[in-house]
Design a protein around this nucleic acid. Structure first.
Lengths: 154, 154
DNA sequence: GAACACCCCGTAGCAACTCCGGGGTCAAGC
DNA sequence: GCTTGACCCCGGAGTTGCTACGGGGTGTTC
C-alpha cells in the first residue's frame, strides 16, 4: 500500500502522514525498490487510531502515550483513565469559557443596528468601554462567570 | 510608563506587548533617553482593547480591523456587525463540536474501571475498535454509543 | 517520447505567542 | 568603587499540528 492509498483509505492528507512518521507516531514503513513507502494493514490501523484520537482533540503527545499503552498491554490502565480525565477536564473548561464567550458575543451583537456609522456603533462602544473597565482594574464588572479577564489561558 | 508597568497594569506579558507592537497592533511608543519604551495612557487603553477582544477569541487580524473602525468612526458599522457575526458563527460551530466531543470522552471514560491492566482496559478497546470502524471506510456509521464503530464529526 | 499522476525530500509558513541568550541601565547596599 | 538585582533592549528560535512549496525522480498510458 502506497502512501496515497493509505491517505485515501483513512481520509488523511499525505503530508500529514509523513508528518506523523517524522513525529514518531507512525512507525517508518518498509520501502519499495523505488523508495516509495510500503504500508501494511498495521499502519492503517495505527493511523486510524491516531486520527480518532485527534478527532477527540487529544494532543499528539498524549496519543503517543496511548500508543505506548497499546504496545504494552500489561501496564496499569489507571494511567489511561487519568489521561482521559485530563483531556475531559480540558474540554470541559474550554466548553465553559466558550459558552460565556458566546453569550458575550451575542450580547455585543445585539448592541448594534445596521446603518449606523461606526461612531455610533453600539458594539464598538461596548468593546471600548469594557476594555476600559478592565484596564482600570474594575475586574469583575464586565467579565462575569468563568470568564478569564485580561490574561488568556496562560 | 515603562513596559513592565504597562504589563502589570493590564496583566499582559511583556513579550506579548512587544509582539503586538511588531505585529502592528500597538503603535510604537516614544523612547526614553536610555532606549526604554515610554507608554502613555492611550497605549494602555488600546492594549486593554486588544486583550478584551482576544479574550473574546477574536483573531488578531480582526482586532486590527476593529481598531481601524475605532480610528475611522465615519465608516459604516455594518461591517462590524458582520465581523461579530462571523466570530459568533465560528464560536457556535466550535461549541457544537465540543459538546459532541465531551459526550464521546465521557462515554469513553465510563468504559473503564480502575485497576485493570491495559490489556483489559475498556477505554483502549473502545478507541481501537472505533478507529478500526472508521478505517474500514464505514463512513456515515451512526454513533451507537454501545460497541462497534464510533462515528466522529470529521 | 511526452503528458500525467504519483512519489521523494527538505524547508518554510500559519497563529499567537513564549523562551533564550547576550547585552545595556539604574538604584541600593557594602 | 563595586557588586547585586531588577528592569530593559534586541533578534532569533521553539511551540503545536499541520499545510504548502520547490525541485526532483518514477511509472503508466497515449
Amino acid at each position: 500500500m502506497r502512501i496515497g492509498e493509505l491517505g485515501k483509505a483513512t481520509g488523511v492528507d499525505i503530508e500529514t502522514i509523513r508528518y506523523y512518521e517524522k513525529a514518531g507516531l507512525l512507525p517508518p514503513p518498509a520501502r519499495m525498490p523505488n523508495g516509495y513507502r510500503a504500508y501494511r494493514p498495521v499502519h492503517l490501523e495505527r493511523l486510524a487510531f491516531i486520527r480518532h484520537c485527534r478527532a477527540l482533540d487529544v494532543p499528539l503527545a498524549e496519543v503517543k502515550r496511548l500508543l505506548d499503552f497499546v504496545a504494552h498491554p500489561e501496564a496499569d490502565c489507571g494511567d489511561i483513565n487519568q489521561l482521559i480525565d485530563e483531556q475531559l477536564g480540558r474540554v470541559r473548561a474550554r466548553l465553559k469559557s466558550m459558552r460565556a464567550l458566546e453569550k458575550q458575543l451575542a450580547a455585543l451583537r445585539a448592541q448594534c443596528q445596521v446603518g449606523n456609522s461606526a461612531a455610533n456603533c453600539g458594539i464598538l462602544h461596548e468593546l471600548v468601554a469594557a476594555a476600559n473597565g478592565e484596564a482600570c482594574a474594575c475586574h469583575g464588572a464586565v467579565a462575569k462567570p468563568g470568564f478569564r479577564k485580561g490574561s488568556l489561558s496562560r
